[in-house]
Design a protein around this nucleic acid. Structure first.
Lengths: 152, 152
DNA sequence: AATTTTTATATCGTTCACGATGCAAATATA
DNA sequence: TATATTTGCATCGTGAACGATATAAAAATT
């Protein structure tokens, strides 16, 4: 009996589960401000650099625009950001934070540390996190190319 | 300017992205048999041990029954499995593979290796995978407890 | 300048995820 | 044995993800 199909041997299942559980850890912190985790990711992108076209945000998050567009519309409806047609390129929609969107950064200032500390454990410490980051970055880079090549 | 909010410093975003991209890597392999990745996970569980109640499957995948039930119904509609009321406990729905569901194991025999090899890279090799597994397992274990405690 | 191609975004349909809630069967308690 | 509680599953609503497709503006080509 070989273990090819054993759930316990699957990297993907671990990533899938870890991702879901850590998103759940964010939930109580974000939901009090009416935010979801993907919406929080958009805020991270815009806090780093405000006023970006939809495509740049999507690329940064490695998502398709058909995922990001509805997400941005919901955030616009909440008054967190505005979407205005680009001047130089009329196809682009420029996304800009409102005052409310900028103020959320102060309100959420404790979030990264709170979630971060709830993940630390025996094998994941301040010393080993860089190793984990490098492995995940390599996997992401690898898969980005792999998935693109399949589409040709 | 502190880097708390920098996307590049976030573990969760890496997990979220890696999980999505690896699921996309499964897609061309699974879709030719009409399967999604979560459905493939259900098959992994049932191939390991056939004939389980919904709750056991959900627990194994760390999902809620309200996620698993519709998923199983779709698979039942595809003729991959059957759902029959339990005899000893009438509340339970026992999930059992059909012939078609069992035969999928042969057809998908190349999948684990194919996806596995597409993930291997400089920092993720046969030698380092156990380290990565242990880190992810620890994170999952940590978060499982953390998230449960918050619900009390 | 007219036509083709590419690019940026949006729309649609399907399938997860998951919080909230409902219901009936099983179990525990009075 | 009657009542209360717990358990197993299902239903509903919302928000992602994403493949497929549409549309209009911009860029490239003829």
């Amino acid at each position: 009996m070989d273990g090819r199909f054993k759930l316990d041997n699957q990297l993907c299942f671990r990533l899938y589960t870890a991702s879901r559980l850590i998103t759940q850890a964010y939930h109580p912190l974000l939901s009090q401000y009416g935010l979801t985790y993907p919406q929080y990711l958009v805020l991270l992108v815009l806090w780093e650099k405000d006023s970006q076209p939809v495509n740049d945000i999507a690329k940064r998050l490695m998502l398709e625009t058909n995922t990001v567009t509805p997400l941005l519309k919901r955030m616009e409806a909440e008054g967190i950001l505005t979407r205005t047609q680009g001047k130089t390129d009329a196809r682009q929609m420029i996304v800009k934070l409102t005052r409310k969107g900028r103020e959320l950064q102060d309100k959420l200032s404790e979030v990264p540390e709170t979630v971060g500390s709830s993940v630390l454990c025996e094998s994941v410490t301040a010393e080993t996190v860089p190793t984990l980051f490098r492995m995940l970055d390599d996997i992401i880079e690898q898969l980005k190319h792999h998935n693109n090549e399949s589409n040709c």
